[in-house]
């Protein structure tokens, strides 16, 4: 039985923060008893989400603001909220690419949201009252 959190982290809005974030997420996922594949999936989902903040939400902002993560773990779920101060986007309008057509057309981008949706059990995105954006990922600890 495990109950953790919230574990709150504020990191610079730069690509070099990603390695630290992955380390925190995988450590907590191991403590929660997730198996190797599920740890790999939540690591990927969080890294892709945070990369989108750095590469897209903060695009054109100089310097990049920091962003926050809040992680909660209980017996059933591993929950991560990623809160940024960048541009909002229409998450629900995103059309999932078809493979291999997407890559045959020369695209190397656009795969991240597909992987986020594929690797977590629930994903929501909303604009907070203070104008920050919150992406919430929920992954069951076990299948």
């Amino acid at each position: 039985m495990i109950s953790l959190g919230p574990c709150e982290v504020e990191v610079p809005g730069e690509a070099h923060s990603l390695a630290l974030i992955r380390m925190v997420v995988t450590s907590l996922a191991e403590m929660a008893g997730m198996d190797e594949n599920r740890i790999g999936e939540i690591e990927l989902a969080v890294d892709e989400a945070c990369s989108n903040v750095v590469d897209h939400a903060y695009s054109g902002m100089n310097p990049h603001p920091s962003f926050n993560l809040a992680i909660y773990v209980d017996d059933n779920d591993f929950i991560i909220e990623i809160i940024d101060r960048g541009k909002h986007f229409n998450f629900n309008a995103h059309v999932l690419p078809k493979f291999p057509d997407h890559w045959d057309e020369g695209n190397v981008r656009g795969v991240g949201l597909f992987l986020i949706r594929k690797t977590v059990d629930q994903v929501t995105y909303e604009k907070l009252p203070d104008n920050r954006n919150c992406l919430k990922l929920v992954k069951h600890v076990r299948k």
Binding site: L44, V108, R109, V111, G112
Partner: peptide
């Protein structure tokens, strides 16, 4: 130890 989405896409580009 880790690959992101763009690196998976690149694997396909390398192969192709």
């Amino acid at each position: 130890s880790y690959m992101n989405s763009r690196s998976f896409a690149l694997l396909y580009r390398f192969h192709h």
